[in-house]
Design a protein around this nucleic acid. Structure first.
Lengths: 343, 343
DNA sequence: TTGAAAGCGCTAACAC
DNA sequence: GTGTTAGCGCTTTCAA
């Protein structure tokens, strides 16, 4: 109704036009719109009303150039060795969703990129030096550990999801993958499993640590348990056929599978079902991540819990501190075994 | 090694500094870095080498302000009635992943926002008038149809995922939800089901059309099939308990469930399993979306396929055309029934 | 082929 | 309190 009564006036192009209309200077308009207290309450309200009436909003690009604050955080998924892995991988997406919520709550916009280091060795430099971002969040280290290290040495507002290595420079938030892998294997061994297949591509740092942890547990147990590694693709398309093949060629004595992610575990569950192998009776199965969907599978997936929401909050908190000039240590979260039905 | 040999010179702050270093003017540097042909090949290469050596990259904020092209597309998820629904909803995420891939391939960055229209009636105006974006993609119409219409009337580079209504202004890409709902119900009725529960919150336009289509199929069948609507929450947390409650209070004669999304279907599958009800023997179940994960469930989910990847490409293609000043019609994709095991 | 200069739209230091 | 002015860092006429 009100739209019919007051036909919208011509759209204002910039602060100067609004200033002319209001009979004040551009500076005053800028201050009024930013709710600065230095401006007379009456004129401020008048200008704000005028802006609202004309649907005027200051150009953010200009404002951000001028202030040097972009209000934008880059969220980047580096896909080095796992090029086929899609940005829509559920773990990435879950973390991304949490990051988006946390950043938006803090008033930041989020710029999403997928980087292919293989095509472009300077992927990270290009992003951090774009001048468009107040800070950068990396989802995963991929196989770019050293590259990240060297950029982090000079670009401070950078926080990475991933694994911590002794003496590393860059601020990382993540779960202790080694401990998680160990937990998984310990559980399987305690159940009586002695021949464990590991499904995961160990070129990724986190995955490699999970396998290492599992191997350590096997060693420590003194049971002679063996762990066979299978390099499972991360792309959804290839993953299924590869799991099928691995299931067929693996040692028939294998009595447990430790999947490096819940996604792999779910695909494995399905393939086992198709082969008529009961989980956990014929084959125990443990996943990793504890994505929400793992409670929906039949049987429910036993898995290693990572606190993704907490991790996202930690990443954002560290990044904002770094944007403010502080230095922040890495955050290593403790994984937790969640026993459900699959093992 | 090379890093040890040549200690990095002090970082250049802007084009002017590089210009001084190269003994040319800022204009020439700008042209050289943009690979403009007007600049002498030799000087161009010299400047580019210098830039590389110093790790210099022009400030994008300034460049974009000057040219008026931001190279950024906004991707926004409006959460009107479904406020609790998280940005990490798998359908959103799948579509978002595809959009990200398509946009990045075309050289655009992607700015992600979650909008809460309830808190802020001007959510969309604020976004399109921010001056930060060349165009905007909306994932879903939520309950904001009229709001979107009025903004679309003046802001052209806007493409929306959702449902098409007769005579609407805004460019939409989506699946014919009515046809999809009808397909689902037809399939269930053909299987002999006569009492169908619909799980979904019909305040969303697409969901409402799916139910309407199902009701139309029931009507047309002349079988006296009834369809009972249950308003299922979209937030993962509440969804499960609500489905459980609905399952317990629904008419005992109910022999089929049509879930408005695969996510709802998967949660329903799990709840049915817990109640010892076999799918599809005791209860037939059809989902909607055909997300990749629906092939991993046990039993595999029968669902209505939406071409999410194709839809994402269509959205991006339409948006780029609109950014270029063209006008584009809406794209309504035809849904397809995918019969697997659950019905 | 290159340099000089204007200006994208905004903000903030400095005046008054 | 408000106006004036000088840039933020870049691109792009225009002139040479």
């Amino acid at each position: 109704m009100s739209q019919d009564r007051e036909p919208r006036p011509r759209r204002l192009r910039n602060i100067a036009e609004l200033a002319k209309l209001a009979g004040v200077s551009a500076g005053t308009v800028s201050r009024a719109l930013a709710d600065k207290s230095l401006v007379n309450r009456e004129t401020r309200e008048r200008i704000q009303a005028l802006a609202r009436e004309h649907g005027f909003r200051p150009n953010q690009m200009a404002s951000r150039l001028r202030t040097g604050q972009t209000g934008v955080v880059g969220v980047v998924i580096p896909l080095g060795h796992e090029q086929k892995q899609h940005i829509s991988d559920p773990f990435f997406m879950t973390l991304l969703g949490q990051l988006a919520d946390a950043l938006i709550d803090r008033g930041y916009d989020l710029m999403l990129s997928r980087a292919l280091p293989v095509d472009n060795a300077e992927w990270l430099e290009r992003i951090v030096d774009s001048g468009m971002l107040d800070g950068v969040l990396l989802i995963g280290q991929s196989d770019q550990f050293h590259n990240i290290e060297s950029v982090a040495a000079r670009y401070r507002p950078l926080v990475v999801w991933g694994t911590h290595r002794e003496g590393q420079q860059h601020c990382v938030v993540g779960t202790d993958s080694f401990a998680g892998g160990r937990l998984a294997a310990q559980h399987l061994i305690a159940r009586g499993c002695r021949r464990i297949a590991f499904f995961g591509d160990t070129r990724g740092l986190e995955i490699e640590r999970r396998l290492a942890g599992a191997r350590a547990a096997a060693e420590e147990s003194g049971t002679g348990t063996r762990i066979d590694g299978f390099a499972t693709h991360l792309s959804a398309e290839e993953m299924v056929s590869q799991i099928a093949a691995d299931l067929d060629r693996m040692d028939p004595a294998t009595d447990a599978i430790f999947a490096a992610s819940d996604l792999i575990a779910m695909a494995t569950l399905r393939q086992l079902h198709e082969r008529g192998r009961k989980v956990p009776k014929d084959m125990a199965l443990v996943g990793f991540d504890d994505l929400p969907m793992t409670e929906q599978t039949v049987p429910k997936l036993t898995t290693i819990h990572q606190d993704i929401a907490g991790g996202a909050r930690a990443m954002v908190a560290s990044l904002l501190a770094r944007i403010a000039g502080e230095d922040t240590p890495s955050t290593i979260m403790v994984p937790r075994l969640v026993v459900r039905e699959s093992a």
